[in-house]
């Protein structure tokens, strides 16, 4: 087995005529916080959708611990330990915060097919353990006071926290965050930065797309820059910051950080 948890090798994804991802390669080490940046429409979210099985790339390989997972369905990707959040928040908005986070326990739950109809002692034990875990995550993300509140009634910043708690509830090995700071205020962004550090300390590998450069540069150990679906640069933050190719791409694209 290689030292890399995730290896993306020469991946291309087309939409009709459009090349959304063009021959992209990158390698993520275990325990890393890996950043992906680039102007809007560069193909960042599409890359995450390819990793998580929402899209199947036409060309290339996506290796998870050395095994190709390209084209595997999303629920199996999650079972492998790859969990994500969404750029446009996707919560079960009518359901309570606790129930939302409980969805992350789905793959960890040991309930058998007949437990949908009849409870057994093992069912009660499993159910209780999973709710307990939900309680721990609500504490960690300061969500306990909203346990019974419908997720859709809460503010943007809180909803982002619920999404992370939900993904973390599945005890992922790789956590994929798509613009976790989008829509957050300064204070919330600071809090998020600390939270991400804590998650890393738990041993979770993190991949994130983010426009907040301060946050990316302080958190990420390695960064890939994408433009028009292709990699234009990669390296450690200090290198990326001064790379003329990157600066060029950002100036040339009328980058607007306030996209919804």
């Amino acid at each position: 087995m290689s030292e890399y948890l995730l290896e993306i090798s020469h991946v291309s994804k087309y939409f009709q005529g459009l090349v959304a991802i063009n021959d992209l390669s990158m390698k993520v080490k275990k325990g890393q916080i890996y950043g992906i940046i680039g102007p809007n429409g560069a193909g960042k979210t599409t890359l995450f959708n390819c990793i998580t099985g929402i899209y199947r790339p036409e060309i290339g390989q996506i290796l998870w611990k050395g095994k190709d997972i390209k084209g595997i369905s999303p629920h199996k990707i999650a079972e492998l330990g790859i969990l994500r959040t969404f750029q446009t928040i996707r919560l079960f908005s009518e359901m309570s915060v606790a129930e939302n986070i409980m969805s992350g326990r789905h793959i960890k739950s040991k309930q058998r097919w007949y437990n949908g109809v009849i409870p057994t002692p093992a069912y009660y034990k499993d159910e209780k353990a999973n709710w307990k875990k939900v309680g721990e995550l609500m504490d960690f993300f300061h969500l306990s006071e909203f346990a019974t509140t419908p997720a859709g009634d809460l503010s943007y910043g809180i909803q982002r926290r619920i999404e992370m708690a939900r993904a973390l509830a599945a005890e992922p090995e790789l956590l994929i965050l798509d613009e976790p700071a989008a829509g957050l205020n300064e204070h919330e962004t600071l809090e998020l930065t600390q939270t991400i550090r804590k998650i890393q300390a738990m041993g979770v590998t993190i991949m994130m797309i983010e426009h907040d450069m301060e946050m990316v540069m302080s958190l990420c150990e390695y960064i890939t820059v994408i433009n028009f679906g292709a990699k234009i640069s990669e390296g450690v933050p200090s290198f990326i910051q001064d790379d003329p190719v990157v600066i060029e791409a950002y100036i040339g694209s009328d980058e607007d950080d306030d996209n919804e």
Partner: peptide
């Protein structure tokens, strides 16, 4: 089982992504 049905009902993509 019941919860999984609700999750699918409310957001199929999110449900899939949770496994």
């Amino acid at each position: 089982f019941g919860r999984a049905m609700f999750y699918i009902h409310k957001d199929e993509i999110a449900a899939q992504s949770m496994g």
